[in-house]
Design a protein around this nucleic acid. Structure first.
Lengths: 145, 145
DNA sequence: TGTGAAAAGATCTAGGT
DNA sequence: ACCTAGATCTTTTCACA
């Protein structure tokens, strides 16, 4: 992970669709050398994927919430392989504290959100905090000073 | 937003670096037609960007936390344009409830995390929950049934 | 690790249905 | 809105430093 790798990460985090030749211009390296370095960043698991980001509101997901689950024991949500497949569940974090996990949930309506909460109730006690807006939806990973 | 748009969104969320010709094979449409539809999805703000995702642990960010900020009033964190620029702050959500916002923070060490908390203390009361692991780091936005 | 050059493949533009 | 086709640009491969 030298300065060149960080330069490539910076560019690919900002725009994952940049061509190798455009990348090569920006970091001052030949296209094959860029391709080789990017391949290694992928192989070493530094880059975990390239994803288009989608505006939730513009795709009909008007209700977004952070749901804190308290469900220690055999019924814990984290033990069920199926939950990460629910399309309303965008992220799951296992956390310290009174709760066991935090989920980011996005549904089309409050009614749809209610049925997700009902389904989550099988695993433990859900506690919901509604997201009003997202002042910072995403920030690239940069080298820390 | 017809079935073809959803097919393109599905593919570009799974792999943002797919070429238009590879996309055209997968959705059974000519490359120029694919390019035109993708251009419109970008223009309409449905697609907000294409981003390489980076493994935080493999880039030296060993401490991840969800920090809930209670800071209503003139000193509120959400009023300071500078905070979204801090490299340790990966996401900011404005939320309902006793708190005003939730931040996802990633630092190299507990010591570095402590200094971020100290800096956040200027805006209000931070309450930290540590992230032990991330069973679901990301889920694509799919059309809901 | 890196480069340069040639083959293979992708994109863009134009004209047509 | 979509397709085809040709010109241009990009990616990939490979010999070599």
């Amino acid at each position: 992970m030298d300065a060149m790798d960080w330069a490539l990460l910076r560019e690919l985090q900002a725009d994952a669709r940049l061509s190798y030749s455009e990348l090569s211009r920006r970091v001052h390296l030949s296209p094959p050398a860029v391709a080789e370095r990017v391949r290694r960043l992928e192989e070493n698991g530094v880059v975990t994927g390239y994803h288009a980001h989608v505006d939730l509101a513009r795709t009909g997901r008007d209700v977004i919430a952070l749901v804190t689950m308290s469900c220690y024991g055999a019924t814990c949500l984290l033990l069920d392989e199926a939950v990460p497949g629910w399309p309303e569940v965008m992220e799951i974090y296992r956390v310290t504290g009174d709760a066991c996990s935090v989920l980011r949930v996005a549904t089309a309506s409050m009614e749809a959100f209610e049925t997700v909460i009902d389904r989550l109730g099988k695993y433990g006690q859900p506690s919901s905090t509604m997201v009003l807006s997202t002042p910072l939806p995403w920030q690239p990973v940069l080298p820390l000073p």
